[in-house]
């Protein structure tokens, strides 16, 4: 079981604003994009055979009391220790999400080395990074119409379709309702599947 850190800007997130504006243009008149938020996800994976509780204490201190991961002047965060994170990850009220990761190995070796240098801790095998986009949409029927909105705003296909994910660099996991953390872990740990635009 891994520990998880989710951080987001509490000062204006200009990227989220631009994504919101661009998304609204792409969706057209039948769909509404009410809100869009962006989070950074860090997954702290224990060494093989180990447990996250070995390092979570020191790691939690580094998160709370240094600016290594989070600067409290501009960011807010949720640090979910392995025992606290629960079985599932739930989107914010009314939202659905797109979790995106690089197609390369998601481990950030440089960040890990820097963390070990700045905040020595034991038992941490890897830090993996991913981005989460939360979207609040409404379709013609009043519901979120996730299928259509994901097609329009999610994976890029051509200059008219898709926005938040370029499939040649990233792969995506649609989060519609609660998702099991094991699934998130597998998505981040296993190699990204080969991609072929089927159209």
């Amino acid at each position: 079981m891994s520990a998880v850190l989710l951080s987001r800007l509490k000062i204006t997130d200009l990227t989220a604003w631009t994504a919101l504006e661009t998304g609204r243009r792409l969706l057209g008149r039948d769909h509404t994009l009410d809100r869009l938020a962006r989070e950074q996800l860090f997954l702290f994976e224990p060494e093989a055979g180990g447990n996250a509780d070995v390092f979570e204490g020191v790691l939690g201190e580094a998160v709370r009391h240094s600016n290594f991961f989070v600067n409290p002047n501009k960011e807010s965060y949720r640090f979910l220790a392995s025992s606290e994170r629960g079985a599932e990850w739930r989107p914010p009220e009314g939202a659905w999400g797109i979790l995106t990761r690089s197609r390369d190995d998601t481990r950030d070796e440089g960040l890990l080395q820097r963390l070990l240098r700045e905040h020595p801790l034991r038992g941490l095998g890897a830090i993996r990074k991913a981005r989460v986009w939360w979207l609040w949409t409404r379709g013609p029927g009043g519901g979120p119409d996730v299928g259509r909105c994901y097609a329009m705003l999610g994976v890029l296909r051509d200059s008219r379709t898709g926005l938040l994910v370029n499939p040649h660099g990233e792969s995506a996991l649609l989060i519609e309702g609660a998702v099991r953390w094991e699934k998130v872990e597998r998505f981040l740990i296993e190699p990204a599947p080969a991609f072929r635009d089927a159209a």
Partner: peptide
């Protein structure tokens, strides 16, 4: 190759 389709990315330097 297929007009209009995105077939590449310019990913972060590695």
């Amino acid at each position: 190759f297929r007009p209009g389709h995105v077939e590449l990315t310019l990913a972060p330097n590695r």
